[in-house]
């Protein structure tokens, strides 16, 4: 396996891991919070809001700007 393929595989595995966690979180009585809940938890403080929105703005500048 080339390093290119290995790197791509890593991204896919991590993406699938995220999807799996979200699916588990959506099950009834799951102890794992949904991503939406975690985001609202982070956004409840001003430093969390600044951090999340700065990250969002950076993504726009990094990929598109």
């Amino acid at each position: 396996m080339t390093t290119h393929a290995l790197t791509l595989t890593g991204y896919v595995v991590i993406a699938l891991l995220g999807v799996t966690i979200e699916i588990i979180a959506r099950r009834p009585d799951s102890a794992v919070p949904r991503l939406d809940t975690v985001l609202r938890w982070v956004l409840r403080t001003r430093s969390g809001r600044i951090g999340v929105f700065a990250a969002w703005a950076w993504m726009g500048l990094h990929f598109l700007g």
Partner: peptide, 17 residues
Amino acid sequence: TGLVGILVVGWAWLTQP
């Protein structure tokens, strides 16, 4: 994108959660 980002981050700083 920079202007939009500055406006939104500024809004996040100025407002109360």
